[in-house]
Design a binder for these strands. Structure first.
Length: 755
DNA sequence: CCAAAGATTGTCACA
DNA sequence: CAATCTTTGG
């Protein structure tokens, strides 16, 4: 256990205190993953059976990575037996194992939020309600937060407060919609994401002996990212650890950013009330960022009232100040950021992957993408439309889903007429009505289409029967073949592949490729699970995939690209150079958040998360106007810019210096005009962005290939080639010591040695 | 039943 | 603006 020596004092205590309730408050960059890894390794080396350890993480990827790290300490065989995964994936496993207790088949489908929204929309229309009043999104949120508070449909209708709320909002029927929705999911043998929590809780609540079984099984419970757990998740953790009380939660209240989907920061703030015996350890030393960044982050987060006391500090170097870039429009902002990345990269010999651009909303990626593309800087956008949400992917998965679970109504609706087989909307509506009237699943209507008295033309009935037989044939196929063979067979003989292949537009080609990519994924799954009997069958694959997100998809992380993502998606990551863009009122903080202290504090925590991703250098940017709904709107700089102590900031000009130097005023609500003059000795001058003046003197024009030159850091070298124009003119130079490097002539300060 | 044109509406983050 | 939904005419 040599690794204990690698830890600082609170880290070591957090690793070695394994009995009883423990809370680890892990400041940003304080080595949390390390502590968690070693804690589990320590448990195992102390003789705890890995089978008895449950570790809940935020993403599947985090679980996988941690398992690998633990395997390095204790060996792969031990690590493999750990129960490790997201709440949703662990609970879905339990629910499948115990499904008979709650009347579901073990192969139940997991509806994603699109599926459940569609179902809600169907129900609302069926009930004759106006979907302008009962907006599916709104109804879905309402039901989701009820489930996250462990309020089922019956409780919802009985709860006076909720009913009063709904009545006042003139939406008294939400309870009824909820009830019907639950019934429809049940008939479809489907659960939504929230059900995985609610039903796990209810299962344990209803069957104490079963709870007991799992309490014994999970003698040690660890929860990562505890600040982002919701009421239901916390309730289940409490149930599970009630017997042994070996519960360890890890988190940082300052990074709680998921209240919008039900996360309750109160769980971490009030944890001690539930466990008076609690031992708390605070990891306050930051190993990630410079002093300047840590201090700036602290100066922001201290504005929040609702937080646990802690002092994050660092031994790292001072670092540079935070650059602030002002742009006139969102497009200009993109150009400045791209140019700035280009300059930093050339000036400091950095890789693209050292950079991240973080934004509040996904739409902001577009301006950034365009600008980066213009400068030929490779990038990768995370988030946005998920791979699994793409039309063609959902289509093919719907075929697979329907084969695994015939009752899956949403899957059936999606594919019964795709590719077109003459079963249109009218027919489908009749079938769905028949299903609701007879209280059976939609599939069961298809099976009994002749017996049921539905007014359908014989030709249509024949088509429906053909569809039913098609799916039935696939089902038999699934039992006989492995996941890949079955899936590729289904993809082609359903006609789906052919349909996609016939579309030769760029989008069509892309769709076809996406389906191929999915099939490749299934192939990989099949290969990986060859040895397990039945382990490579399609139903097993379908269980895995429902809870996967893009973050879990294996990507070629090797490629050297700039990262573009939302701040939410950046949680837990770090980058040497970080740009936080769009720092404008009504965007960040979001317009929807500025009316309540709680929501504003969450936005501030989000800002804190953004700042603390940076290791070396941080840059803020904002635009004075940006496009929204197609028209240009004026934006004021974010209040958050004022909240960072000014001594940590450096105000650079993003272009239009002339304007400021000519004394033109910045619109009211802007930052102090004086802050915008460049301090005479600022290093920013050297990296000043897109300054047009420097093209004039052109110190870069006289270099050409073949010249022998001298560089301050790399020594003697020979110019291989020159590319680009103006400020972005750069030279590929072969240095005697370090080999070939690309340098921006503007910064390289080369001296000619010999012609 | 389907394709194309026209109208609408929303955008905050996500497992 | 752009994606999605609705209407219309064939």
């Amino acid at each position: 256990m040599n690794y204990i020596k690698e830890l600082n004092e609170p880290q070591a205590l957090a690793v070695q205190t394994v009995e009883g309730p423990v809370m680890i408050i892990a400041g940003a960059g304080s080595g949390k993953t390390r502590v968690l890894t070693y804690r589990i390794a320590y448990l195992i080396q102390k003789g705890v059976d890995p089978f008895n350890i449950l570790s809940l993480t935020f993403t599947n990827k985090a679980a996988k990575e941690m398992k690998e790290r633990i395997a390095k300490v204790v060996g792969i065989t031990e690590a493999r037996n750990l129960w490790m995964g997201t709440f949703h994936s662990v609970f879905s496993k339990i629910l499948r194992a115990e499904s008979d207790k709650i009347g579901f088949p073990a192969n139940f489908t997991i509806y994603d939020s699109d599926d459940s929204k569609n179902l809600l929309k169907t129900i609302i229309i069926e009930m004759g309600l106006d979907d302008k009043i009962y907006k599916p999104n709104m109804v879905q949120n309402r039901i989701s937060s009820a489930k996250n508070s462990l309020i089922n449909a019956i409780a919802y209708k009985l709860n006076q407060d909720i009913q009063a709320d709904d009545l006042e909002a003139r939406r008294p029927k939400i309870g009824v919609i909820y009830e019907k929705y639950v019934m429809r999911c049940f008939k479809a043998s489907a659960m939504d994401f929230d059900d995985l929590l609610l039903k796990t809780y209810e299962l344990f609540h209803q069957y104490p002996d079963l709870l007991h079984k799992y309490q014994h099984r999970f003698k040690f419970v660890l929860v990562d990212e505890f600040q982002d757990t919701n009421f239901a998740q916390y309730a289940i953790i409490k149930q599970l650890s009630a017997l042994y009380q070996n519960i360890c939660v890890v988190g940082d209240d300052a990074q709680s950013i998921y209240a919008f989907r039900g996360a309750d920061i109160g769980n971490i703030l009030n944890f001690k009330k539930d466990y008076p015996e609690l031992k708390t350890y605070k990891l306050e030393q930051n190993y990630r960022s410079t002093k300047n960044i840590v201090a700036a982050a602290n100066s922001v987060i201290e504005k929040n009232k609702n937080q646990l006391e802690k002092i994050v500090w660092t031994d790292n170097s001072e670092g540079s100040k935070i650059q602030v870039i002002k742009a006139t429009t969102d497009n200009e902002e993109g150009n400045f950021v791209a140019q700035s990345i280009f300059n930093f990269r050339m000036n400091h010999q950095l890789a693209n992957k050292d950079f991240a651009v973080l934004y509040r909303t996904n739409i902001q990626s577009r301006a950034m993408e365009e600008a980066l593309r213009r400068l030929n800087i490779p990038y990768r956008v995370y988030g946005g439309l998920s791979f699994y949400q793409r039309r063609e992917i959902k289509d093919i998965l719907s075929y697979l889903r329907l084969c695994v679970n015939h009752n899956d109504e949403e899957a059936l609706k999606r594919i019964i007429n795709y590719p077109a087989r003459g079963i249109g909307k009218t027919t489908l509506d009749k079938i769905i009505v028949a299903a609701a009237e007879n209280e059976i699943s939609v599939w069961q209507v298809l099976e009994n289409i002749k017996k049921l008295d539905i007014k359908l033309a014989p030709a249509i009935v024949k088509k429906i029967d053909e569809f039913r037989q098609l799916i039935h044939g696939f089902e038999i196929m699934i039992r006989q073949k492995n996941a890949f063979d079955a899936a590729s067979f289904i993809a082609s003989s359903s006609g789906l592949l052919k349909d996609l292949y016939s579309d030769k537009t760029p989008e069509g080609v892309n769709r076809y490729e996406n389906v191929q990519e999915l099939l490749n994924g299934i192939k990989e799954f099949t290969e990986n699970n060859k040895d397990h009997s039945d382990g490579n069958f399609l139903p097993r694959y379908m269980e895995d995939i429902a809870l996967l997100t893009d973050a879990d998809k294996d990507e070629d992380d090797e490629k050297d690209r700039v990262t573009l993502m939302t701040i939410h998606a950046s949680k837990g990551l770090e980058f040497p150079y970080v740009f936080v863009v769009g720092l404008e009122e009504n965007l960040f903080p979001s317009q929807l958040s500025i009316n309540s202290r709680e929501e504003l504090e969450e936005e501030r925590r989000l800002f804190y998360v953004a700042i603390t991703r940076a290791m070396q250098q941080l840059t803020f940017s904002f635009a004075q106007s940006r496009f929204k709904y197609g028209n240009l709107i004026h934006s004021d700089p974010s209040r958050f810019l004022h909240e960072v102590d000014e001594s940590y900031l450096d105000f650079a000009h993003a272009g239009n210096q002339q304007r400021v130097f000519q004394g033109k005023k910045i619109e009211s609500g802007g930052l102090n005009l004086n802050s915008y003059s460049i301090p005479a000795h600022s290093h920013l001058k050297k990296v000043s962005i897109a300054s047009k003046s420097s093209t004039k003197g052109d110190p870069v024009g006289s270099f050409k290939a073949g010249l022998e030159v001298m560089h301050a850091r790399f020594g003697k070298g020979k110019i291989v080639s020159i590319d680009g124009n103006g400020d972005s003119k750069m030279a590929t130079i072969k240095f005697e010591k370090d080999g070939e490097k690309k340098l921006l002539l503007k910064f390289a300060k080369l001296q000619v040695v010999k012609d």
